[in-house]
Amino acid sequence: MAKHRNSKSKNFGFGNQAEYATKVALKVHYGDGHYQTVQAHIERSRLFYNWLNEEHEIRDIRKVTTSLFSEYALYLKMLLDEEDISIATATNRISSVNVVMQIMREDQKIRIDKIHAALGERRCYIRRSIPEGMDISQVHNLHQQLIANCFNRSAAIVLLARSTGMRLRECILADLPRLTKESANNRINIQDGCKGGRSGAFAPRWIPVTDEILFALEYARKVSPEGSRNLLALNESYVSFLRHEVNPSRSIMKLHGVKGPHELRAAFACDRYKDLVGTAAPVFPRQENPDRAVVRAARQIISRELGHERPEVTNSYIGSETK
């Protein structure tokens, strides 16, 4: 196959479908060995092809350019910033595209060498600045500004992120009718769109219901597309929603003092710390030293409510107890 392929034909002659062509090229390159490596590269590159098709309607690997690959890296960085994926996942996705491009093109012209630099090398870190959006009135003003600019569903995301601490993806994919029904029992269980497949009965993530949550759910259901249980229309993909709704609304968020939903998630965590401990989160100036046992228990609760397994991760939301 490798000796007789026509590099000037679609997908460099490996096949008409990008995913199939990649599979053929990798098997030729690895000589039918390294099965797990081949499967990992196929799966990760498939996600890249899905993005190419969704964003640019490109189905031919020959049309991949350095600028397109860099744009994909920025897309992954956005997912990373909103905690939709981990730094390891983002790095592996770019690395696999590097490998596939080199094998199929037989050169290294389309490549990202400094992957961590492209992704911003984030996490884990200790938060040292007070989260944006701590003032609820500021959040409600942002909500109104987004509505005024016809970003109704982004306005719903802002309310959901601030009141529940959900990630961006979780806000978008939240089962709104289910959450509304659960709220009657004064708590809701975050289950949809969770990172790392953490959902179902073995990964409960219960959040106590507040008036802000009830308001957020009511508004989100109001702007949810007809026939949908979440913020996506029935014929709309997650990537398309990010492209046409979320990303354009970010400039308005920044204009009103909120970089994005992740800051509102941190603001939620700081509020929960104060509820549970009785004092401000350590990222705020404070004089008192709360009881260590109370702090430890509170961090475990906050970590679970944010969808993390390790309490120390809360440092990136509320700051560290040791300055």
Rank of each mutant, 00 (worst) to 15 (best):
M1W: 13
R5L: 15
N16I: 02
Q17K: 13
Y20C: 03
T22S: 09
T22Y: 08
K23H: 14
V24E: 15
V24F: 02
A25L: 08
L26K: 05
V28I: 04
T37D: 15
T37Y: 11
V38A: 08
F48R: 02
E54N: 11
H56R: 10
I58F: 07
R59L: 10
D60Y: 12
D60G: 08
V64E: 15
D81A: 01
D81N: 12
E83V: 04
I85G: 02
S86M: 07
T89S: 11
T89V: 13
T89K: 04
I94S: 02
I94V: 14
S95M: 10
Q102H: 07
M104E: 11
R105Y: 13
D113K: 14
K114D: 15
I115N: 08
I115K: 05
A117T: 12
E121N: 12
Y125R: 11
I126A: 13
M134L: 13
D135Q: 10
H140V: 06
Q144E: 15
L146E: 08
I147T: 01
N149P: 02
F151W: 08
F151S: 02
R153N: 00
S163L: 02
G165Q: 06
M166T: 04
E170D: 05
C171W: 00
D175R: 01
L179I: 07
E182Q: 15
A184K: 13
A184C: 06
N186H: 13
I190F: 09
G196Q: 14
G197E: 15
G197D: 11
G200K: 06
G200V: 12
I207D: 00
I207Y: 03
D211R: 04
L214R: 06
A216D: 09
E218W: 00
E218M: 02
P225T: 03
L231W: 00
L234Q: 12
N235Y: 08
S237C: 07
S237E: 14
E245T: 12
V246N: 02
S249D: 12
I252K: 06
G257R: 10
G260Q: 13
P261M: 02
H262G: 08
H262V: 10
D275S: 09
A281Q: 14
Q287G: 04
E288T: 14
E288K: 10
P290I: 01
D291G: 03
R292H: 10
V294M: 07
R304K: 12
E305G: 04
G307R: 00
R310C: 09
Y317K: 01
Y317H: 12
Y317W: 10
I318E: 07
K323H: 03
